[in-house]
Amino acid sequence: MHIRQEDSERHVLSVTVDNEAGILARIAGLVSARGYNIESLTVADVSEDHRVSRITIVTQGPPRVVDQIIAQLERLVPVHQVRDLTDTGPFVERELALIKVAGTGEVRSEALRLAEVFRAKVVDTTLESFVFEITGPTSKIDTFVTLMRELGLVELCRTGVVGMLRGASA
């Protein structure tokens, strides 16, 4: 007997919630308890009075499962709204990464050249290292990280995706 798998697709969900203790655990726990996948989850307080937080979840699943995730999230009392950016689209998604690359000589200058190509900023430097800051969609960061691994990447830190619909309305 084998465990069955279904084809899945990637969705970016934007969730607004009450900014209260335990809300992140509530959301993350729901997702894990029901066996859904999370690629990334970001959260920060976004309202003037600090009462509302916005969470961006990147998830993978068959359409039926993604619909369930949304319905299950909407069931939580502190959840105000769940929006599937992938379905509502078009939307902007961005991620920020800090990447430390160590090396000297040609490798070091190549890293700096590539950083310019990718519009990454140097936010820290020593004679044998750089820390780059790069923002962009996940795919761009993935590509930059792959290149840096060749050139002496020693440490990597990523924020996960934040996303927002394009156009004038909220």
Binding site: G22, A25, R26, A33, L76, V77, P78
Partner: peptide
């Protein structure tokens, strides 16, 4: 609250 988070409709501390 941690233990009952997923077996309640909602919980409070």
């Amino acid at each position: 609250v941690g233990l009952t988070r997923h077996c309640t409709k909602h919980n409070y501390l």
